[in-house]
Amino acid sequence: MTRYTATAIVLHWLVAALIIATFALGLTMVDIPGLTPTKLKYFSWHKWLGVTVLGLACLRLLWRKTQGVPPYPDSMQAWQQNAAHALHILLYILIFAVPLSGYFYSLASGVPVVYLGIIPLPVLIAPNPELKTLLKLVHYTLNMSMLACVCVHVLAALKHHFIDRDGILKRMLP
């Protein structure tokens, strides 16, 4: 196998696009002053996107575990392979941790999550003002960590494509 499967490629780019949209929407909604209908609508959309990312991340991880991944090129140094592997692990952790922290932040705030306005997700914790404050910080910190990791991931992919010309990026392109 020299490339990712078509399913892996679709899941990668779909999750990436949804993460970018969720992040942008999150930044937009928190800058809206007061509690307006628009802000409430954006919060709902943000949660729905987060739940969708979480569901697709589960599918993506399952696909990766059952289908495997293409090996790195022999020209790639061992330290780069180890760094890439570590970054992928960290990205997967964050892809799960960010929406889960948002989910628990919403619950601690006393606001249940109703996916697409139709499917109520389980309320696993009671409203808790102290936990709400902590989870808000956790959710923000995890988001900023993901942003940093995504930037490193993209820069590394571009370096491999334009400088090393080793085909790493082409393995994930449609």
Score class of each variant (00 low, 15 high):
55 G>Y: 11
55 G>C: 13
55 G>S: 14
56 L>C: 11
57 A>G: 13
58 C>S: 14
58 C>T: 14
60 R>F: 07
60 R>P: 03
61 L>P: 01
61 L>W: 06
62 L>M: 15
62 L>F: 15
63 W>H: 13
63 W>K: 11
63 W>D: 10
64 R>L: 12
64 R>Q: 09
64 R>P: 03
66 T>K: 14
66 T>D: 14
67 Q>H: 15
68 G>T: 05
68 G>M: 05
69 V>Y: 06
70 P>Y: 01
71 P>N: 14
71 P>W: 12
71 P>S: 15
71 P>T: 11
71 P>M: 12
72 Y>M: 04
72 Y>V: 00
73 P>L: 10
73 P>T: 11
73 P>F: 10
73 P>N: 14
74 D>Q: 15
74 D>C: 11
74 D>E: 15
75 S>H: 10
76 M>C: 00
76 M>V: 00
76 M>Y: 00
76 M>A: 01
77 Q>L: 05
78 A>D: 07
79 W>A: 06
79 W>R: 08
82 N>C: 02
82 N>M: 03
82 N>I: 00
83 A>S: 06
84 A>M: 01
84 A>V: 00
84 A>S: 07
84 A>I: 00
84 A>W: 00
85 H>Q: 12
85 H>K: 14
86 A>E: 01
86 A>S: 12
87 L>R: 07
88 H>D: 08
90 L>I: 12
90 L>R: 05
90 L>Q: 05
90 L>F: 10
91 L>F: 02
91 L>N: 03
91 L>C: 04
92 Y>G: 01
92 Y>C: 02
92 Y>M: 05
94 L>K: 02
94 L>I: 10
95 I>G: 01
96 F>I: 09
96 F>R: 03
97 A>M: 12
97 A>C: 15
98 V>S: 04
99 P>Q: 14
99 P>E: 13
99 P>L: 15
99 P>R: 08
99 P>D: 13
99 P>K: 09
101 S>L: 09
101 S>V: 11
102 G>P: 06
102 G>T: 12
103 Y>K: 04
104 F>D: 00
107 L>V: 10
107 L>M: 11
109 S>M: 12
110 G>M: 06
110 G>S: 08
112 P>E: 09
113 V>I: 15
113 V>S: 08
